[in-house]
Design a protein around this nucleic acid. Sequence first.
DNA 1: CGCTAATTTGAGTGACTTCAAGCACAGTGG
DNA 2: CCACTGTGCTTGAAGTCACTCAAATTAGCG
Lengths: 239, 239
Amino acid sequence: MYINAIDRKKAIQSQTCITNDIALFSCLNGNQMKLIELNSINKYFKKDTYIYREGCRHSGVYIVLNGIVKIYKIGPQGKHSILRFAQKGDIIAYRSLLTNELACTTARAHSGDVFLCYLPQPIFMELLQNNPKFNQSIMRIMCRELNESNNMVINIAQTNLRERTAQVLLALKKEFGVDYANTLRITLTRADMANMIGTVTESLIRVLAQFRDDGLLAIDRKRIVFLDIPKLDQIANMR
Amino acid sequence: MYINAIDRKKAIQSQTCITNDIALFSCLNGNQMKLIELNSINKYFKKDTYIYREGCRHSGVYIVLNGIVKIYKIGPQGKHSILRFAQKGDIIAYRSLLTNELACTTARAHSGDVFLCYLPQPIFMELLQNNPKFNQSIMRIMCRELNESNNMVINIAQTNLRERTAQVLLALKKEFGVDYANTLRITLTRADMANMIGTVTESLIRVLAQFRDDGLLAIDRKRIVFLDIPKLDQIANMR
DNA sequence: CGCTAATTTGAGTGACTTCAAGCACAGTGG
DNA sequence: CCACTGTGCTTGAAGTCACTCAAATTAGCG
């Protein structure tokens, strides 16, 4: 496969192992830091490329250093359900590793310039077993994920499209923030957004148009600007 | 509150701490066994009584010794979504304990004669920190739960009622088994079953009636007999 | 090279269909 | 006798299909 100059540059950049400013690494001692320095591999992924696919076997975990990773499952008729977006500091692929199962999700670079730190299984296990703080952190991450997944279940089961749309907008705002003009910082296609809340593109578009007409949002293609957050909150949380 | 003779008897039975034949306890050493013997409390719950409610603060975890515990969340309009049924050997209430949050689910005795072993937080933490095998077991349990929750998301989001009904029947069969005559071992109201798959009682009843008419099930009130499992499998897994 | 032309991709709309929820009510058995 | 099961009917929310339009990407070509 051909690698051009820019990609090569990025690949070289990725060789520097950034273990500071990642919360998960803050509890490591000197030896453990060194262990990671020596045994981890930083990897670069172009936008939309696969990091791993459903059904493959993992030999380690990834920690997101930069960019946004989309994690989703593919349903019986090929429809995608987005489970979460992982960003800086998040760990991915740990579940199948711990249970020694095949990957049950697919991960893809959602943004450009995705840099991941790959930790081989033995290193990950070493940290898990010999660093109680690290162990605790992983447990807390799992708990949070479990909780979010449970909430997703009751949301899809019990709320209508309008509510879920308001919810996902606010959740994205909370997770990825807005700029000075209240514009959502993450860009998503309508299809992605629909796949986050268990609906189809057209239906989501209709609800967004409704929100626009009601003065809750301003929409210019992928730019989504929040105009009336209290009202969105109200739609998201009650009926 | 009045306690009759039978209940008292059951309460007394519950004083015996059964730490053997629970998989989670198999990795404990003598000291840890003793720690549990001295510090755990076995509790008895009558059918339909609350074990804990959404919003309360936990001070320990429970391990199911006998009976079936229903774990659910209550949605915005008071509708229940059943997340799982816990049975012998399963651990409940650990999530909120690990994250130090309020309970985000409600647990109730679904069957009669529910006996739980209550482990106070310090004991649980002690085991978690000082017994790697125990730690690993808990992690695996969390992974399994997370996986199941994720699957639930895509099921509710992407499959129709007919498929979900077939799926839940097979899942219940797998988890609770059938007797000599292929009758499902767990008894559920139609409302409970509906709440497992994000639908309402009437809709579920109609699908069950359809399965009955198609010769896949025999239904006599709460007795559900499997007649054509391959066909159910087919309905559950494809379209 | 640069500048259109052509193609692809995503956003958006309208018409139609359908699945399942909602409501009302009848039966039944523990 | 009341909670639970079951049925008929109606309605509506959301999915499906078919299409347009705009923007972005790629291809073609002087």
